[in-house]
Design a binder for these strands. Sequence first.
DNA 1: TCTAACGTTGTA
DNA 2: TACAACGTTAGA
Length: 356
Amino acid sequence: MSSGLSAGGRTEDPERSRCKQDSPVVERRNRSGILSEPLSKSLKKSRALSQYTAVSSATSNGHRDHGESKRHSAKPQPPPPPQPTVSALTAAAKLDRTLEQVLEGQNGLLHFAQAAALLKRAGMEHMLLPGGMGMGVGIGDAGSGASDLEGASVTDAVGGPVDFPYGVGGGFPFNPGLFIMTPAGVFLADSALHMAGLAEYPAQSELASAINSGKKKRKRCGMCPPCRRRINCDQCSSCRNRKTGHQICKFRKCDELKKKPSAALETCASRPVSAVDAGAFPRGPSRLPDTERHTQSRQERLMQSDGRHRDARTSGQVAGQTEGRAGGDREGPCNTERERERERGGASGLRRMTVD
DNA sequence: TCTAACGTTGTA
DNA sequence: TACAACGTTAGA
Ligand SMILES: [Zn+2]
Ligand SMILES: [Zn+2]
C-alpha cells in the first residue's frame, strides 16, 4: 500500500510520486514542512467530507488500516495517521510535532503578545496610562503555554478572554477577542479601540480595506485546529486533487476561511475567534446562515468533528516544522472580522497597528 | 520563478 | 450541495 502507487487516479502529483516511490514510509514534506500522507493510491475518487468525518473517531490511529480499509467499507478517515511503518517514523514524527507545536503555540501567543503590546502602547500614548497595564504581555507566558498549546487555540491556552492573563490595562480589558491578528499585521477591533479610547487611532491600513473589499485573499488564522494541523491527509479531494484543485487539505482548511467572508466577520467580530472557541462569549450565531456559507457547511462540519478532535499529531504526519514557508499562508489571524465589520458598518472594523 | 492556497465558477 | 478545476494572489 503505501508504496508505490502512483497517484491513483488522476494525475499523479509529482510530489507524491517522487516521495512515494522511495519508500512507503517516507514522510513527504514540502518546503513548507507540510507533510503529505502517502496518499493511498486507491483513493481515486474523492470521498465526501462527511465520510471522512464520520469515521474519524473510530480510527484514531492505530486502528485504521492503511488505505485499504478505508476504501473498503470503512470510511476513509480524514487525517488519521498514516502510519506507514510507524516505529521510526513515529518517533521522528513525534519530535517534529512537538517542535512544530511549540513553535506554533509560540507563534500564536506571539501574536497575542504583539497585539497586546500594541494596544498597550497605544493606550498609554492616548490615555496616559501609568504603565502598568498589567500585561506583561504574555510573551513570557507564551513560552510556558506554548508547550501545551497543541490543539488548543491561543485563547484556550490562555484560558479564554476571561482569564486572559495579560490582564487589564488601565481599565482596558485585553480581551483576545479584540485583536485580530493576521499575517499581515495585527488589527484591533473597533470595539477594542473604543474601549481604550483610541477610536481615533489612525492606522487603518489599506490592507484591511483590500481584504474587506475582497480584493485580497484572506489568510489562515493559524490558530484554529485545522490551521494547526500540519499534515495533509492526502485522502481528501483537495489533497488528491492538489494539482488541479489548488486547495489546501480539507482538514487543514482554516475554520475562518471556510466561512464566507461576511459570515466569518460576524463570527469574528462578535467575538473573538479564540474567545468563541473558549465559549467565553455569548456569541450569538455560531452558525452562519446557510446563505452565507457555501462550503462551510460540509467542510466545517467535517473539520469540527474530525479535525478538531484529532490533531495532526494524532494523525501521524506531522506537518511542518515551522510552517514558515510557503507562499501564501503563514499563520495569521483571522481577518474576516474586518469584512464583517465592514458589512455592518463600515470599514471601521479594525484598526491596524504596527508594533515596533 | 515556484509553490501553496484562496476565491470563483462550472458541473454532477 | 459537494466536488473539481481554473485563475489569481502571495510569500519565499
Ligand atoms: Zn487532505
Ligand atoms: Zn484557522
